[in-house]
Write a protein that binds this DNA or RNA. Structure first.
Lengths: 143, 143
DNA sequence: CTATAAATAGAAATCATTTCTATTTACATT
DNA sequence: AATGTAAATAGAAATGATTTCTATTTATAG
């Protein structure tokens, strides 16, 4: 937690109860969370937070590199905690339990230089979406 | 065009004026197109097509492997023609002119087996989003 | 030519996300 | 510890892409 609060300070974000509560929520989960779900979880802990605030907080935490945004194929937004913010990595998302794993491996530079040579283009961003079953879910055939 | 109509028949889709018109539109463009934009272009050619129909047609053509769906970071849907439907490939999207290029290169199997070993997971899907400037746009500094 | 399943239009609904504004709060600086 | 200020927040309302629904039309198999 302290680590993340330090990052917030670095970015000149104030340490507010809502931001801390959202962070705490993510620290206790290894799966991705959606805005409405977060609102409900905070509500259960007796902290009413408006959806617009949640959207904003999530955006800010993403901007600070604390959360990663997951653009789900359902076209809804989800976020997941970034355990190692400063290392180039991608995320594996379990299609059953929503668990998110960080994958510190990316041979993208090969693809990137292939594209730059072949198309004479300039690659700016890339994002790899990997979906499948995590070790737990692949064992259980049914949920 | 004939090639794509054959694919439609294969999938038991009827050859309708709307579907042909949408296909023609894509055959004349190398960039991605959005539903509303398509409606307007068809309108100029005096073919009024309702937006729900356009959404449906795009979805069907994607299902038949004729178009690829581009989930833009703006969270709007775009589609682009797939020139070589049956080869595993990814798409490079120019952030300036929206041109879409197919990239027949993917060393994903490496990443995939890395993940399956490391996380003991089962990889089901992956999609790589590559964004940058195409050869034309990187030359012109300003639009 | 006809039957019928598929395709379509248009209106309306949906619903995640964003915008706006008044109010409150964190915290740097006294 | 008090205070001023910019940042944070709530809540209502707007937005706008996408989807649903239903009545009507159309492509095409036989």
């Amino acid at each position: 937690m302290e680590k993340y609060l330090a990052v917030l300070k670095e970015y000149h974000f104030k340490i507010t109860p809502r931001r801390k509560a959202v962070l705490e929520l993510f620290l206790r989960q290894k799966r991705y969370l959606g805005p409405y779900e977060i609102k409900q979880m905070l509500g259960k802990a007796s902290l009413e937070v408006g959806l617009p605030s949640i959207y904003r907080i999530l955006e800010e935490l993403e901007g600070a590199g604390i959360l990663i945004k997951i653009e789900h194929s359902s076209r809804r937004l989800y976020y997941s905690l970034c355990r190692k913010p400063h290392i180039d990595h991608h995320h594996f998302v379990c299609s059953k339990c929503n668990r998110v794993e960080e994958v510190e491996f990316c041979n993208f530079s090969e693809i990137s230089s292939f594209i730059e040579e072949k198309l004479n283009a300039k690659v700016q961003h890339h994002s790899l979406r990997i979906e499948g079953l995590c070790s737990q879910c692949r064992r259980k055939k049914s949920l």
